[in-house]
Structure formats: structure tokens, C-alpha cells
Amino acid sequence: MRGASVGAPRPETASGADVLADLPEKTRRRLEALDTVLFDFDGTVVNTVELITASFRYTLPKVLGITLPDEVLIQNVGMPLLQQMQIFDPEKADELVRVYREHNRRYHDSLIEEFPGAREALLEVRQAGYKTGLVTSKSRELTLRGMRLFDLEPLFDVCIFCEDTTKHKPNPEPVLEALRRIEGEPRRSAFIGDSPHDITAGRAAGVLAIAALWGPFPRQRVLAAGPDVVLQSVGQLPELMRSTTAGRANASGPASRQRGPSRS
């Protein structure tokens, strides 16, 4: 089964070279062939855990008169918001979405945070020559609002929002749509995300699925989805890419092309 041989995740202090050394030869070869890297947004590039849980804590008592543990509130994050609310109450899903978004917009800028080192990692991946894309189940409005807070928008060649596809993660359609727009091939692409939905979508799309364990999901839930590569910290990403390109120093590929922080 693909992803099953990834082995025990290295500790957060491990280098990208250590992560690369632990991978099966087939996975290392695929990493060396990469020219496109796609990213999830919430929980991968930005830390929205407190924003999301606070909005749920406000919404469910107000609309349904119930309170639930945080781990239950966030267990379906990564799916479109309406789908998450339909799980709580199909008949009141629209009202749940309205109240949630009302709270989320009000507190968005004060509760969202950038993961330390995330922007630097993205910039280094671009400067190494990789095409980059964002694939999220979040709305265009709120995703762009978060991106602009941290000047992230120029670091992506393509962005796929909830409105851009009819199917959503864990379905592979958003990942495939990003590749279509960026002219990427699944066999030469990777998708990095923190949720089981990201890993499932990536695997179904035929790209390398890379788990970002710095997000809010329990480690075992993410690993159970079968990622090809497991990263403990955002700092391991550029180190992994540097180690990969160093291993193919005599081959042509992304390492020979320099990309600046411009977005088409």
C-alpha cells in the first residue's frame, strides 16, 4: 500500500537530509523529479486553530444549544464549511454557516497566526525553482484575507479555493485542478497538508502526499491516511528540498531555475 512504508516519523529536530535518508528509494526518486509543490492553507501555512475553535464554540451553543470538545469541533476541518455543518445538523447547516462566518470575520485578524518559518520556507521552495500552488477548501474571501495579512499571495503561482471546484477534499478534484492550471503533472508534484483529507486527496490525485504534523490533527489520524513523506516541522521542508536537489546536482530540473516571489 502506497505510503505504508514511510516508517516512524523523525523527531522535529531531525534535518531534511535525515527525513530523506529514511524514505524508500522509489519515494526519493519521485522527490528528485518534482517540479511542483502544492500546499494546504489552514494548519499548514497559517495557524487558525484558535480562530476555528473559537468560531465553533460561539456557533454551536448559539444555534444548536450544545457544546462539544475541541477535538470534535475540528475533526472535519479541511472539508468545506457547509459540509462540516451538515454533519452537526443538516437542517440548520445554513444558519450554522452564517453565524460561524459572522464570528470568524469579526475575530479573523486577531486570532490568525503565521506558523514561524512558513513564509521563509515557501520563499526558499520558490527560489529553488519549484512551481507552487495553494489548495484549500476555504472560501476565496477569507483565504485571501489571511494571505494578505502575511504577504503570502505573491508566493503562489495558482490558488484553488472552495468556489473553484464542485468536489472538495478528500476528493482529488481540487488538487488536479491546481495542476491543470499550473500545467503540472501528478508524477512530478507533491501536496503538503496537515489533515487526513489532504493526504487522501493527494494520494487519489497521484501526487506525493506529504504530511505536515505541525497542524492541529492528531498524529495517528494523519499517519493512518498513508502519507508518502512525514515532516514534523515547517523547517524540515526547505531542508528536504535542499537535500533532494543536492542529490541530483548533475541532473537538470528545478534546481537549475530560479523563481522569484511573483504570482501569475
Rank of each mutant, 00 (worst) to 15 (best):
L123G: 15
A249F: 15
V19E: 09
R221T: 14
E173A: 11
R181A: 08
H168V: 10
F150A: 06
F217G: 06
R248E: 10
V222G: 13
V234C: 12
I66C: 11
T13E: 07
L176N: 07
R180N: 14
Y100T: 06
G184W: 00
I74P: 05
R242D: 13
G235M: 08
E102K: 05
P261C: 07
D22F: 09
I52G: 07
V135S: 03
R259G: 07
L179E: 08
E120N: 02
R221I: 13
E102R: 08
R105M: 09
P261S: 07
L144D: 13
R219Y: 06
L20F: 12
R57H: 10
A204T: 10
V135G: 04
R101A: 02
T27Q: 04
R219S: 13
Y100H: 07
A224N: 09
R2A: 14
R119G: 12
L51N: 01
Q75F: 15
R257T: 15
A205Y: 08
P80H: 06
I87A: 14
L68I: 11
A205L: 04
N104Y: 15
G117W: 00
M147T: 08
V19D: 07
D42L: 05
V222T: 13
T44K: 00
S5V: 12
Y130W: 00
L96I: 05
V45F: 00
L64M: 12
P216T: 07
L149F: 12
L134S: 02
S137K: 09
M79Y: 13
S110I: 10
P216L: 09
V46M: 01
P11Q: 02
A205I: 05
K167Q: 14
A17I: 03
T67F: 03
L142I: 13
K131P: 07
L149I: 14
G226M: 06
S262H: 15
L111V: 09
R105Y: 06
H108G: 06
E71T: 13
T59W: 01
N47I: 02
T165K: 00
Y107N: 09
T36M: 10
G193C: 01
L38P: 04
P216D: 12
E124R: 06
A249L: 14
E173L: 04
M85C: 10
G184L: 03
E114T: 10
Q84C: 08
L223S: 06
S5G: 15
H108C: 02
E185K: 11
V230M: 05
L34G: 10
E163I: 03
L149Y: 02
R106T: 14
A224S: 14
M85S: 04
L51D: 08
A93G: 05
V125Q: 01
T13G: 05
L152F: 01
K26C: 14
G202P: 07
D194I: 00
M79S: 14
N171L: 11
H103I: 10
D109E: 09
P90Q: 01
Y107G: 13
R188N: 12
V207T: 10
T244N: 06
P218V: 07
A17R: 06
F41K: 09
I66P: 15
A14L: 01
R106Y: 01
V77C: 05
V45D: 08
T59P: 07
